[in-house]
Design a protein around this nucleic acid. Structure first.
Length: 485
DNA sequence: TGAAATGTTGGGGCG
DNA sequence: ACGCCCCAACATTTC
């Protein structure tokens, strides 16, 4: 009797360079049949269950994965509920012998894995789990005093050293050629008990706010490689400046693909260094920041909700739903901020330079808790990632590890003028300002009346007046910081 | 992966 | 010719 193995897909929605899949085929070769599952496990995820934009992405990514698996005659079964219960139930019904999966690093995910292994042990299913999805496993790297790194540069140096010496790219997977899929009709599988159809997860919202996203993105493994190729061929050599120009398209757009594991950082690494240059190294540092974020989350799991620096526990954040809403709705009266928030709304994604600007505006100009910004990003980003989101917001708010000092306060007008000097980005996302001269496009509130009139802008009507005076807001923020000391 | 405030320098106008 | 002031331009410090 042939053995049966389940691959549990998690944030590794790809067939190439997938550690657990490779292990599965290397270990079992033609001695087993393979089935794969994905569990929509929002009960396990709690507060950090996927937001709306991520759910949209997941639908298409799973759909793409399902198609790729179908070519190899491997079914992808969709389950929904507490992972340990669902997987155990499923494993029993198909008489599985083995479960293969890759680790995730979110606090909820570690608990989930623990319980899954417990439940499967009870029914005699052997589990094999693997490190995947990061350049370096957090548990494998400590500084010389035996503690976790808290500063990026030494972390990255250690990581580079380790990575160069120990990591080789996995060969292209033969998954599905060696391992045979198990046909649904050959197993005791009841469609009444288990969801089979992706549509049953209802990941696509009823209101069609995702039309621009459909046009811009191609979720799935093939789309991930298309993006990476385009970036490596066209933009990676100018990334050193391109990464700061939100009006250009010289960034990789790889974040959602990476988050869902449609492509691995190893693959990115090896594609990137084919074109090694100063720019390439800067790009790889950003991939390093992603690893650092996951590393920090591993050692400081509470930072999703609480500042890492305890001095921030008493920081006098304000409560002001009115201005929070204006920030969310992209009506702050600062063009670069509003452009970013609209790009987020339309694409489920924002250029990183602008993420820093809008985040600084929320935390420092509006003095609203960074967690409220993190929550909004969580719901609206297709690349929403607990580790990256947490690090990004704590960095901006100045309360994380290796964070920007709180007193570094972005001036949204100067940032706009510096990084979008022609106003390209504003023209794209805030079209009501498109006719303004570049001299005024980042500060319509200071433009002479005639200039506004000629551009067809009526402040307070066609475009909002600034909701704060930046200079005064800056002083207020510095005062607030002082009060915690 | 800032910005504003403050300090310094040096050229030119001008009495 | 000289000192004085003004003010860019740049540098340093502070938040």
């Amino acid at each position: 009797m042939k053995k049966r193995a389940i691959h549990w897909f998690r944030s590794d929605l790809r067939l190439i360079d997938n550690t657990a899949l490779h292990a599965l085929e290397n270990k079992l070769a033609d001695k087993a049949d393979c089935i794969s599952v994905f569990v929509m496990s929002d009960p396990d995820e709690g507060k950090w269950a996927m937001g709306a934009a991520s759910r949209w992405w997941l639908h298409h990514s799973l759909s793409s994965l399902q198609a790729d698996l179908q070519e190899r005659e491997i079914p992808l079964v969709i389950l929904h509920g507490v992972a340990s219960k669902e997987i155990a139930r499923f494993a029993k019904s198909v008489k599985a012998d083995y479960l293969f999966y890759n680790h995730r690093h979110e606090p909820w995910a570690s608990k989930q894995e623990e319980v899954v292994e417990q439940e499967l042990e009870k029914i005699g299913v052997e589990c094999f789990s693997y490190h995947d999805g990061l350049l370096i496993e957090p548990a494998n790297l400590l500084n010389k005093t035996g503690g976790p790194y808290k500063v990026f540069t030494p972390f990255w140096n250690a990581c580079l050293n380790h990575f160069d010496r120990h990591t080789v790219p996995l060969p292209k997977s033969k998954f599905g050629k060696i391992i045979k899929g198990t046909k649904f009709d050959t197993i005791e599988y009841s469609s009444k008990v288990f969801k089979k159809d992706l549509n049953d997860l209802h990941l696509i919202p009823r209101i069609k706010w995702y039309e621009d996203m459909e046009e811009f993105w191609q979720p799935g493994e093939a789309g991930a490689h298309k993006r990476l190729s385009k970036f490596v061929n066209k933009s990676i050599t100018k990334y050193d400046t391109g990464r700061d120009r939100p009006g250009d398209s010289d960034v990789s757009y790889i974040s959602p693909h990476l988050h869902f594991g449609e492509i691995s950082p190893r693959q990115i690494w090896h594609r990137a260094i084919e074109h090694d240059s100063k720019s390439t190294q800067i790009y790889l540092r950003e991939i390093g920041w992603r690893d650092f974020a996951h590393y920090l989350l591993h050692y400081f799991p509470k930072t999703t909700d609480e500042p890492l620096q305890t001095s921030f526990a008493s920081f006098p954040w304000r409560t002001d739903n009115g201005s929070l809403e204006k920030w969310q709705q992209a009506m702050t009266g600062f063009p670069i901020v509003d452009a970013g928030m609209r790009q987020l709304w339309h694409l489920g994604w924002m250029h990183n330079r602008v993420r820093m600007i809008v985040a600084s505006f929320l935390a420092k100009d509006l003095l609203l808790p960074w967690q409220t910004g993190a929550d909004w990003f969580w719901d609206t980003l297709v690349d929403a990632d607990l580790a990256n989101n947490t690090l990004g917001w704590q960095w901006t708010a100045g309360c994380g590890a290796d964070a920007a000092p709180f007193f570094r306060i972005f001036n949204p007008v100067l940032q706009g003028e510096k990084f979008d000097p022609e106003g390209t980005y504003i023209k794209e996302w805030v079209p009501e300002l498109a006719k303004l001269n570049k001299k005024w496009i980042h500060k319509p509130h200071e433009a002479p009346p005639l200039e506004l009139q000629m551009a067809g802008v009526i402040l307070g009507e066609t475009y909002p007046k600034p909701i704060v005076d930046h200079s005064a807001a800056r002083q207020r923020a510095l005062q607030a910081l002082k009060s915690t000391k």
